[in-house]
Design a binder for these strands. Structure first.
Lengths: 128, 128, 128, 128
DNA sequence: GTGGTCTAGACCACC
DNA sequence: GTGGTCTAGACCACG
């Protein structure tokens, strides 16, 4: 599977899992309307209590990143419908960090330079 | 007082308090070696248990943002000693957000533009 | 249990406990990723308030010697990650003592001899 | 004065002061039977409460590093009488550190080398 | 007065 | 069951 859990991560398990799934969907690794693994199979794969997986899926669905069809399973939501909201979310996070940076005396140039560096290095190296 | 508690905030009380104090110190609102409110007085002010304030101060001290002298009180640490580490920390947060943005298909330009906008609007209006 | 409280010790209880655990972890008596006793059970064992144990564990975690997973328990950190920093720490302590010794007129030979004696007697008999 | 107090130091003030005085006496900066500054004058010098100075002197006297003659003042004890006990004390500290070092897997050679380095660099650079 | 430690007992989220 | 947060109230050392 594409999901690995990090037990040192401070986030609750279900959030870690739903976060990872969200990323896979948004980046297109899981295509729109592709079926997601069943609660039970994923639970087996990760050696995790099914309740936890269920909770992860619930969170994911609530964020609009997947939908469930009773009796058929769960499917990834069409990315086009979700991306705009997600972009806004990321923008807000960006705002918060920039705000913090400005408050401790960093200049816009310093920030932009750092963004540039990161963009050049590419998004391949980044951890989630 | 300069600190207000937001009970809708999901973070624990002590973290909210230490975070707010950290900001006040880093931005120079509380100057270096200036005395911080005593555990008991701040507890009264905020109608919060002294133990919780103590924990907030412990966290603050652990991050190197203040030091305590038994029998005398607590004082803000010299910012110069802490700022470099804090800058690095913020840079890492920035990297993480930029990474997330790139992964969902944003361009460097989009990001830089947003940073620029935020910088122009000034750092006065931002929430912490 | 491997931990005993010495009520004549002037250090606070939580420090005594975290110190003892640190030693057990660093020496490999508790192996990496092995689970530590739960807050409540250790509190029962030592007849100490759970809050105190919690504080001891917090201190331990802050020093990077264990990590906690909510709902699952607490586990010893991989020693390899911590040993280098710890070595440096001990070296600094050593420097301080040697400095003190030299200042009161001891010779390097006297010091080295004492180290040698101690090394021969073995590290088994030493108190922590 | 030769004494400077560090308010960031975690030790209580009186201990810091008595410690500094002890060092001055043991190193011969204050010679045997030389008179120590009066409680009041030292309190003035350091802008510290006389009670604290009194406590420092009491601690010093109790450790045998000075003696008081009623009506005449306080005097440094003859170093020869105190040095042996102090040496033993430092040796014990040394033992403790060496023990700690051995326990985390350092070799005798590593320790001795460090001692040697420290001895070469001289005791001039060391902080108290 | 100050900070620091400890106890007792409660409540919550997570698994 | 686990860890984490919070309250209430007590005691101590320091200045």
């Amino acid at each position: 599977m594409l999901i690995e859990i990090d037990y040192r991560d401070k986030r609750p398990l279900y959030e870690q899992i739903s976060g990872k799934l969200e990323e896979l969907i948004l980046c297109g690794v899981i295509s729109s309307d592709e079926s997601l693994p069943s609660v039970r199979s994923l639970a087996m794969d990760l050696s995790i209590n099914p309740n936890t997986i269920q909770k992860a899926y619930d969170a994911l669905e609530q964020r609009g990143l997947c939908y469930s069809v009773t009796g058929r399973g769960r499917f990834a939501a069409p990315v086009d419908e979700v991306l705009p909201a997600k972009k806004l979310e990321v923008f807000n996070e960006l705002d918060a960090v920039v705000d913090k940076a400005l408050k401790i005396g960093m200049t816009e140039k310093e920030i932009v330079d750092r963004v540039h560096e990161k963009a050049i290095r590419g998004n391949t190296g980044g951890k989630v």
